[in-house]
Amino acid sequence: MTAAFTLNAVSHHFDGAAALREVSLSAAPGERVALLGPSGAGKSTLLALLDGRLRGWHGEAGVLGVPLSATHALPRELRTGAGFIFQEFALVDRLTVYQNVMNGRLARMRTWPSLWGRFGEQDHLKVAAALEDTGLSGLARRRADQLSGGQRQRVAIARCLAQEPRLVLADEPVSNLDPAHAERILGLITGAADKRGIGVVFSSHQPELARRFAGRVVGLRAGAVQFDKPSGQVTSDDIDALYHGAAPGAGLRVVS
């Protein structure tokens, strides 16, 4: 089987500042990987790269057996492979929950009927299943802007599932939620992925959640991989170094 993703010496710069430095990383299909690190560590950049949305990077990268290009977007039939759960949910506020979830299936439809809202039997079934899995069946007809934060998060997850991805990418999926909600949402994402036999890569700045819900934790700092270990082997020293140690390659700077 092909790897979920492989990165070989990938670097990226935003306005001259390094966002990713020589990152080499890969994951097996079905593997659960947490990207851990302080804000600005490059977690979001790395996830955008895996989603095929980043341009202008250097190195080699492939997702689900498809090589990514630093200059061109993936052809749209290949974009369904990786499903992305956006940090701010990215829902269309004025549409219903049902239509927002249906939006995840647009790539699998013929364009013309989809523009008139004529969706196939299969599409309706998949949307219903995604709503069921996320506990949203009762809210299907509600407008997205009438939901609570936690409910909106679940709509974003349902849309991702309706896309039938072979890899789930989630950018800080629980950063806006209280601890109880955070656990439920991470449980929901990883549970749904397990049910479908697909892998998950999520970013977080909360070490306990990363260790609990991922099989493997990748510590990122200043755009570089600081450690890459099975969850059980991540020590508190690793965490301390990640958040309080000196940035690799940055050297010491006197800030006055």
Binding site: D51, R76, F84, D93, Q99, N103, L106, A107, R108, T111
Partner: peptide, 21 residues
């Protein structure tokens, strides 16, 4: 922009993004 980017990420065509986001 975010909802439009989400549909693009999911593989929706440009006209589909226009219609549904």
């Amino acid at each position: 922009a975010a909802p439009v980017a989400a549909l693009e990420s999911a593989g929706a065509s440009r006209t589909q993004q226009l219609r549904w986001a």
